[in-house]
Amino acid sequence: MQMVVENLKVSYGNIKALHGLDFGIEKGEIVCIIGANGAGKSTTLKAISRLVPVEANSIMVFDGHDLNAYPPDRVVSELGISHVPEGRRLFGNLTVIENLKLAAFARKDRAAVQDDMEKVFSIFPRLRERGKQMSGTLSGGEQQMLAVGRAFVSGRRMMLLDEPSMGLAPILMLSMFEALKEINREETTILLVEQNARLALNFAGRGYVIENGRIVLEGNSPDLLRNEEVKKAYLGG
């Protein structure tokens, strides 16, 4: 297992967001977490990225490293876990290239950075065309490309994606997921959370269903797609 999470508990004040999640991810896998709004999907990703504090005895191990010992920036720069946040959160006052350069700021392997930038441009040729443009002026689809490209450059052992389909037209969604598959083929493990369960399960090999901060169901994607409860709750009958 590349990542092992056990008994992950997170609270916001008195409100418990996660009640003890257990899951694991193999290297090179694509795994999705599906669930309704407020189920705890984003919180799970934020816990891994160390953006929210976890409760005692929450175990998160990545490549043999205890994530709890790392501050958020070193989770990215040393362990190589990147995070595409909900709503993309690009630096709108920076150009496309500057956004990518900032993502590589802490990396020491200058030559590899150049290679990774080139890979981003070959996966998303639009970004090369837009290179000198302020990222705030990009279209929604291009912004999502840049958000993913930025994450790829910042750390590429594992990519956490928070609702990458949000706000994209259906055709753009599909091409985005095609691009993510290409990134996965570059040996980047992908953990994705999505409200669009059908899309996510068609893309990922395995999935976890999360409700009110608890994992209620898990399995291979084809099984989950056939599961009656999943169908009723998340796939529109």
Partner: peptide
């Protein structure tokens, strides 16, 4: 550049691996 980014959205800066 990092300062400009931080002035835009300092919460996301750590996600870029920048402390």
């Amino acid at each position: 550049m990092a300062m400009r980014a931080m002035s835009y959205d300092y919460q996301v800066v750590p996600l870029m691996g920048v402390s």
